[in-house]
Structure formats: C-alpha cells, structure tokens
C-alpha cells in the first residue's frame, strides 16, 4: 500500500492481522484445519483493539481522526445514504472539489448532504486540496443549503477538514466573508439541520458547515479552534508540544459533549471507523434518522428559536463585583 496503513500505536494490531492473514493463506494452500488457532488469534486481536482504542489520548484521537483509511464524506454517501446526485459549482467562480454536496436519500427521504472531501492519495488530494476549501467551496455549500431550504428538505453536513485554505487566492476572494456568511445564513435556515464531525473539525473552516440544530461527532472525531500543532506553535512557542495543546484545548467528542458544545456522539467500531466502514456508516445513519426524526415535526419558528437559544448560550462568563 502506498499510504500509511496503520498508526504507530496500531502496530501490534497490524501484526496480529498479518498473522491471521498468513495463517488463512497457509490453510488454504495446504488444506489444513487451523480454526482453533484462528479463533485464538482473533480473540487476541479483539482484545488488542479494545485495549488500544478504549483509552486513546487526545493526540492519538487526532491521529485516528486523520487516519488515511478513515471513511470520508463520499464513502458515507455511498454507505449510509442512497440515490446520491452530486451537484457542482458556486455559480460564481468555479467548482471547489474539497466540498461535495447534493441530494441523497436517508431511509428513502430526500435530504441535502454537504461535506468536505479529502483525497485518498496524492493525486486525488491535489484535486481535493486535502479537504481545505476555498471561498467558492463555502459558496457552493451555501447555494446547496438554500436549495434545500427552497424545497423544504432537511440539511445534513459532514465535517472533515484541517481548516479553510490559507492562500492568496482564498484571501482575494474573501475567505472570511464566505465563512461569515455561512454562519449567518445557517443560523437562520428554515429547515432542520444536523451537522456531524466525521473526522477533523478544523476551526472556522469546519464551523462554516457546522451551525446546525444538532451537532454530532463520531467517537474519534476532533473539533477545535486551531490545530494542536498551531496552538502549540503559538502558545507553547514550540511545535513539539502538540500533545499538551491537544489535551489542554479539549477537542475530543467526550470533552465537547461534556462542555455542551455538541449534542451527541456517534459510536465507532472497536478499532476505529477505519476498521469497519459499514458498521460506522450504519451508526451514522441511525443517529441521523433519530435526530432528524425529532427535528422534522417542529414548526419552523420553534426550530429557529431553539437554534438561536442554543448558540446564544455558548460560552462562559462571570460578573465582576
């Protein structure tokens, strides 16, 4: 495999997986019965996965969230939805491939799905810009949100980005304006919306798809105002302190649920989302169906009132004497 197939702390898991593979091959070639050895190895594998993934540190979660085999937006569109029709372009400048979107069905019901899309290899990443959108990507997203609103269909966003792209063209075309406009428009949408952080929730570039009635996170997703590397470089004045930064910023799903910033956590299989795409997609679909099921019956004004109240309550302050 050209890309990194496993993370450092997954090495033991990878070794057992390899042993199982070898044993199977050997059994097939020689017609041997190895079922009891296989069973014991599989038990060992399961135990290893549990031990490894049960207590991931925040910086390990960052690695899992960025895992090169983790499912991306288009994978979920194949596995958790049906009948996907991709829609392209912002109608102003160009089509930004780092954001994909279009109509899809969730258990038969039409919804608008929009998400950042990373590339699986270098060639695709050049096209997808590593999931870092330009303003035209956010403007395409807004166009599709407005389309959903026009036809009164719910909105689902899947968030997976290191951040909005910092470049000359992005600044020239108003990266700040594009993000800001999405925040304002999403706050006022007259349709139900669920945002899910499926991998990396990188700052304003993530939030630009993330103002929603319900915000969910996959178990090993991360969501932060700046990358741990960036935070370490600025506050610790050393890029090597990313572990401390990752812990201090409280970026895991569990932390953010505790802080009231997200509403629900979507469970991942024991070895992480990358170990079983189908199971992860199934859990995502269940969560979306449940949350949209709660939101859809609400009258529009009630939906918007609750959304506003939720964001107005964000933050912590005190009154000085």
């Amino acid at each position: 495999m050209a890309t990194v197939a496993h993370l450092d702390f997954e090495r033991a898991i990878a070794e057992v997986e390899e042993q199982i593979g070898n044993l199977r091959d050997m059994a097939r070639e020689r017609g041997l019965d190895v079922s009891s050895e296989l069973r014991s190895l599989e038990r060992k594998l399961h135990g290893l996965k549990q031990d490894t993934f049960r207590n991931l540190s925040p910086i390990e979660r960052v690695q899992v969230a960025r895992h090169p085999r983790r499912p991306y937006t288009l994978d979920y569109l194949q596995l958790a939805f049906t009948d996907f029709v991709e829609l392209h372009g912002d109608r102003q400048f160009r089509d930004d491939a780092s954001i994909v979107g279009g109509w899809a069905r969730l258990e038969g019901e039409s919804v608008m799905v929009i998400g950042q899309q990373k590339g699986r290899d270098m060639k695709e990443n050049l096209n997808r810009n590593f999931g870092m959108p330009h303003p035209e990507g956010y403007r395409k997203a807004l166009r599709l949100m407005k389309l959903a609103e026009k036809f009164k269909r719910p909105l689902v966003t899947l968030i997976d980005t290191p951040g909005a792209y910092p470049g000359i063209g992005a600044e020239e075309r108003g990266q700040g304006e594009a993000i800001a406009r999405n925040l304002r428009e999403m706050a006022a949408l007259t349709i139900p919306s669920v945002a899910v952080i499926i991998g990396e929730g990188g700052s304003g570039g993530a939030l630009a798809l993330g103002v929603a009635d319900r915000v969910l996170m996959l178990e090993n997703g991360i969501y932060s105002v700046i990358s741990p590397e960036g935070c370490a470089a600025i506050l610790w004045k050393s890029g090597n302190e990313r572990e401390k930064a990752a812990t201090a910023m409280k970026i895991t799903a569990e932390d953010l649920k505790g802080l009231g910033v997200i509403d629900d956590i979507v469970p991942e299989p024991t070895g992480g989302a990358h170990s079983d795409w189908e199971e992860t997609a199934g859990a995502l679909r269940d969560a979306l169906v449940r949350h949209l099921g709660e939101l859809t019956p609400l009258p529009v004004e009630e939906l918007r009132r609750r959304r506003w109240a939720k964001y107005m309550a964000m933050g912590e302050w005190r009154t000085a004497r």
């Binding site: 993330g210 953010l256 107005m312 964000m314 933050g315």
Partner: peptide, 18 residues
C-alpha cells in the same frame, strides 16, 4: 480567536453571526 477558551472561542463566531 482566544485560543485559551478553545472551542468556546470558535462558538462566539456562530453566536455573533446568529
């Protein structure tokens, strides 16, 4: 953003825009 307030500083963008 005020990095020392982590995700809460990010959420102020949503709050003011709302």
């Amino acid at each position: 953003a005020r990095m020392m307030e982590g995700i809460f500083s990010l959420m102020q963008m949503a709050k003011t825009s709302a």
